[in-house]
């Protein structure tokens, strides 16, 4: 960890430096650590993924282990919007309204194939990916994703918080745009292929 102030080895300003050190630690890591382990999700559950979201909150998967069990149904108390399920023409303005109402800093998970791309519903009514109209931080694949995958998605948001720090959406710009993938070994191609 890098500190931008002199440490006590340089001598002289011991007390002040020590305080600075603490303040720096808290600023740099403490707040982020506290924040990323108490993400309060706003469950924007529209369809099937909502049932897996409920299962994630229930006893077996117990999302409380990751500090995200405090689902608040008012957007003003939340910092993580989980969009679970397909969003259709009539629902998109509602999603945007809820996104605007959430206080900064805020993150968005697009849960499931339908929210991310439209999924199997390539029809007149379904918005083909909410990221066209609302900024998204993490995409969780699956139709619907298993609770483990959603938890991995929440952990990805935690990594973003750890890396990005507490910035408002404006400061973060386009964001990291992480896609959660099941961990796997890179495919080894044979000779004659460019790696």
């Amino acid at each position: 960890m890098e500190l931008n102030r002199s440490t006590n080895e340089t001598g002289g300003e011991f007390a002040a430096t020590r305080l600075d050190y603490v303040v720096d630690m808290v600023k740099k890591h403490g707040i982020n650590w506290a924040r990323r382990n108490s993400l309060w999700p706003m469950p924007f559950a529209t369809a099937c993924c909502g049932i897996e979201l409920m299962a994630t909150g229930a006893s077996r998967y117990d999302v409380a282990r990751f500090g995200s069990e405090a689902m608040r149904f008012t957007p003003r108390q939340c910092d993580l919007l989980i969009c679970a399920g397909r969003v259709v023409m009539k629902m998109l303005p509602v999603l945007q309204k809820i996104y605007i109402q959430m206080t900064e800093p805020k993150w968005v998970i697009s849960m499931g194939a339908c929210a991310s791309t439209g999924g199997v519903f390539d029809t007149y009514a379904v918005v083909q990916g909410i990221d066209q109209f609302v900024p998204v931080d993490v995409y969780v694949p699956g139709c619907p994703p298993r609770p483990e995958t959603l938890i991995e998605g929440i952990m990805a948001v935690q990594r973003i918080v750890a890396e990005d720090g507490v910035k408002t959406s404006k400061e973060r710009g386009r964001g990291l745009g992480l896609v959660v993938q099941p961990p796997r070994q890179p495919v080894q191609l044979g000779t004659g292929f460019e790696q």
């Binding site: 397909r86 259709v88 009539k90 629902m91 519903f121």
Partner: peptide, 11 residues
């Protein structure tokens, strides 16, 4: 209602 109308019958 209609906030989840996704065109099942058309599909």
């Amino acid at each position: 209602i209609g906030f989840l109308h996704s065109g099942f019958e058309k599909l």
